[in-house]
């Protein structure tokens, strides 16, 4: 009879590298919070966009990477978040409060939508979500406040001085990003998080251990919808104008897919890395117009074929490095 020497096995969550990384993340967020004091207006606007991209990537990653739910229709929540912000602000509510309410209303709507749509599987769910986004787009167009494709603006933001407004939106975007990433981080480390990661690895195996896959998926669906709705509201605040066509465009989901595929699907760090890379590529190449879009599509295609785990997945597998620990490591 052989016995396993249990004392030789250690279960680790925090490694030296991850302690350093999390400390650096906290330090970076503190530094970013005071950054507007030294940055120009253009840089503040660009960083706001980066924070929104990180939210979008993290949310799509939560959905696809952890929940195993590929959706081509997440622009549904992006558009609704912005739309409800406009609608609520029109009632005379302060625009910043309207943004929060817009995100909350969209999250509430996402719950029944999730219950319904999650009955679909795989590709049917993916395109079914796209149909819903198109339907929402058409319905929003019917609202006379929006004036069809002409769109409207979040005019009440003009009550704020332009410099103050820019910084407020920046801080809100930073806080939303930090808040959602921390929430996701702690969620993934909790008991539910263990269930989520088990489902990611094998739904059947997880179910056999008593994990309620459908409940967990519904939770992820609602979180992802809420985060993307907040991103839509923030985008509206920094862009001011609301044209339904722009917000309900499938391009938003294409961007999310690009960021997550390149960064590393199912990896917490991967989505963040992907968003930063997308931000840099956009900054340098967006002027290339159509060729920029062709390039994005081609890169996403090549990654899904050659490097389906993305850059971070490849790197983490090679080195065993984990910076933001949401799982455990068994060492002998």
């Amino acid at each position: 009879m052989t016995t396993t020497n249990l004392t030789s096995i250690r279960i680790e969550r925090w490694t030296t590298a991850s302690v350093v990384a999390v400390s650096l993340c906290v330090a970076a967020i503190v530094a970013l919070a005071v950054a507007p004091a030294v940055l120009g207006a253009g840089a503040v606007d660009r960083l706001t966009a980066l924070f929104i991209y990180i939210v979008l990537a993290a949310m799509w990653n939560a959905l696809a990477g952890y929940g195993g739910l590929v959706s081509i229709g997440q622009q549904l929540f992006f558009g609704l978040g912005a739309y409800f912000t406009i609608r609520i602000a029109n009632l005379g509510v302060d625009p910043f409060i309207a943004m929060a309410l817009g995100a909350i209303v969209t999250t509430v709507i996402a719950y029944p939508v999730g219950r319904f749509m999650l009955k679909l599987k795989g590709g049917e769910f993916a395109i079914g979500m796209w149909v819903l986004a198109e339907l929402a787009h058409l319905l929003v167009n019917l609202d006379t406040l929006i004036q069809g494709e002409t769109g409207t603006s979040l005019i009440s933001l003009n009550a704020y001085d332009i410099g103050l407004r820019r910084n407020l939106i920046y801080w809100l975007a930073l806080a939303t990003m930090a808040g959602l990433l921390s929430a996701l981080f702690f969620l993934l480390r909790s008991r539910t998080g263990a269930a989520i990661q088990a489902i990611r690895d094998s739904e059947e195996a997880a179910a056999s251990l008593g994990v309620d896959a459908i409940r967990t998926k519904r939770l992820i669906f609602v979180i992802a919808a809420g985060g993307i709705a907040a991103a839509g509201a923030l985008w509206l605040a920094s862009a001011i104008s609301f044209q339904p066509k722009t917000y309900f465009s499938v391009q938003w989901t294409a961007y999310m897919i690009f960021m997550v595929l390149v960064g590393g699907i199912g990896k917490f760090e991967g989505a963040i890395l992907g968003a930063i890379l997308f931000f840099l590529i956009e900054t340098w190449f967006a002027a290339a117009g159509v060729w920029y879009l062709i390039g994005l599509g081609a890169v996403a295609l090549i990654f899904s074929l050659v490097l389906p785990k993305g850059l971070w997945g490849y790197f983490a597998d090679r080195t065993g490095l984990r910076l933001l620990p949401v799982g455990y490591v068994v060492r002998e």
Binding site: A64, G68, V70, I72, G122, G123, A126, A254, I257, L261, V290, W291, L293, I294, L296, G297, A298, A300, L301, S304, L305, P308
Partner: peptide, 16 residues
């Protein structure tokens, strides 16, 4: 799920 992403990437390339 990967074929969904692959064919979506292909459609973006083709359209543009």
């Amino acid at each position: 799920l990967l074929p969904i992403l692959t064919t979506f990437g292909l459609s973006i390339v083709l359209d543009n």
